[in-house]
Nucleic acid binder design. Structure first.
Lengths: 200, 200, 200, 200
DNA sequence: AATGAATGAGGGTTCATTCAT
DNA sequence: TATGAATGAACCCTCATTCAT
């Protein structure tokens, strides 16, 4: 059916409009409480049009995740190539992570809350893009160990989870907090603890 | 309305049966995908009976959280009183946290996934029982700083989040992992990193 | 089952308490919106007790009608025996009708509104007690014709309906009106029209 | 929300089909006993389609009343303009009233029984379209008094209620009667009484 | 490609009634 | 007689998805 080349292409204007609308709507009402019609209206298209670009409502959520993660991972890889020092590399990952979600509260809500709706989603995510993100972190840690900067007795797998878990908690707290502060300011105090924890 | 003595009491047999059933059902199908009728059937009661003990489907989820957190916090406080060393105290918290969820995969799924369905729930939780749990951790860290064991330049608030975030990520990973391992085994490697990160 | 002599007896205290409670509750919330539990509470008995005195919720409504109509018809018959003049007899019926409902707004609401819930009820009522009430009126008119006071070309059947319809509308209007006035004051102006309409 | 041009329009084919189906279903089963699904099925549409044209089940009932009353009032006003004699005007109103309900037993059942379900409905109706109908009658009576045909000591307000009450009772009786007769035949005998009652 | 009217499956909740005590 | 906990059938409405235009 979807034989037209324009459909489903990421740089198609309507595709992007619908995706942005979905982030906005899911963030404000929650995924389950959001109607496809809401997304369509926010995107300025008819209800049916959503289905020309996305298979289902679930697909909207999955696409938000995938598209965003692709960007983040690509961006992170690019930035990491410019840096040698493992410590600075971890700092860069943390910095990008918090800056990226910190500048778009709605996207952050979708990532921290809506995407974790069900084990079904979580399992799908954790075995694909998220696994790739974890791998990105792990490589930096392994490299740091090879360079003698991080302790060799630390299991990279564990360190990766600790690192990610710490950042993740920062974001969740930031979303739920009544106080308004720049999420990025958390990079330094968090890294202070983690780097020390890993350092030789 | 129904404030009859037998109803709504926590140690009422049916109340507990329904709560256990809800954990089981929510864990396996997900909260939104679960029907109240499923919970009732699993508990061996009629649909309507659920509403003699719980105000709504939401109330089931909230009650799971509150009941469990009350237990955990009470248990943790009790155990912590027996320990002096801040390091050992943190270890005890981590140990209880992972042991508690590690021995009941279904409960863990509900806590790591289902309870995070919506900002509505998250906000409610984070300002009550969860805040208390955070406070529990924070006190240990502050005490450790007072005793000169943890660095004073670390912000207890931040350290608390890093600590919780790390543990939380361990649980989430454990749930989603295909490998079956004892969650408690993560205590040592995780604490190894965190304690070092905090220590003077 | 109901073999105990005390049950279902009209002068039983609880029977009356439940009936009064039902009138009150049905009048304020409406029959369909009322719960048997509301009636029980208003009567100060347990839910189940209602079923010791009444077969069903419907039976409550039917009993309100029957009990009240029995009173009204008996009372009316008694009063009519004391009067000779057909005109004064009609006036007495109207007067009793409006006085009786005019002094108990709740009862009036039940009679004018709640009892007309369905053709099922209406058919049942109109063939029993209500038919008896109609007959009461008809006899007076026939008697008036025999005495040469009312026109013979008027069909008593029709005159009865006109008479009842007029009174009935007075009550309905009174219930729905925002103005508060004594329903009985309507007797004179209404009878003025009707008597003239019937008179030779 | 759905303010699309086709929807909710009175001359829309489906709108009318659903309205007719509602009259049919409500008349045969009663409003509270009828399911929206019954109405949908009778109209030959899906359940959800009902809600494209009507806000709720209540709205169906209210719409039946409003649509029909609008027709009746417009028709009556038109006919009355052609007539001068107040007596003939009252006869025309009665004639239209009984002819209109007499030719559609189902509609009559809805008007005489189902619409009087609750004070909620009754209050809404009596202050809008029904008040307009009453006003129509009142004007004729006032005009008759001005022309010296009806007695001036009669209160038009009261006469209106008596007139309407009499007609209303004819319809109700006709519905509940086992005998089948043309409702319109009641015009003459009823008017015979009422006109005499009003005449100078 | 785009529309939006139509579809119809699905479920939380209420409440009349029962019955063990 | 009286209780009230337990039952489970019943239903309105929503909304993801389809498809004729």
């Amino acid at each position: 059916m979807n034989t037209h080349s324009v459909r489903r292409e990421k740089n198609n204007e309507k595709y992007q409009a619908i995706l942005r609308a979905a982030i906005k709507v899911f963030a404000s009402r929650g995924f389950f409480q959001s109607k496809v019609a809401d997304v369509a209206q926010a995107a300025g298209v008819a209800d049916g049009t959503v289905y020309l670009y996305f298979k289902s409502k679930d697909d909207l959520l999955i696409s938000i995740f995938n598209e965003t993660m692709d960007d983040v991972i690509a961006k992170s890889r690019g930035e990491l190539q410019k840096i040698e020092d493992p410590v600075e590399r971890l700092r860069k990952i943390a910095s990008l992570h918090l800056a990226w979600l910190g500048q778009d509260r709605q996207l952050a809500v979708v990532f921290q809350v809506e995407l974790r709706q069900s084990t079904k989603f979580m399992e799908e995510f954790s075995t694909t893009r998220l696994a790739e993100y974890f791998e990105l972190i792990r490589e930096v840690i392994v490299d740091g160990q090879a360079k003698g900067i991080f302790r060799k007795e630390v299991q990279p797998q564990v360190a990766t989870k600790v690192f990610f878990g710490a950042l993740d908690e920062m974001v969740t707290n930031w979303i739920l907090s009544r106080k308004r502060y720049a999420l990025e300011t958390m990079v330094r105090p968090v890294l202070d603890i983690l780097i020390r924890g890993l350092a030789t």
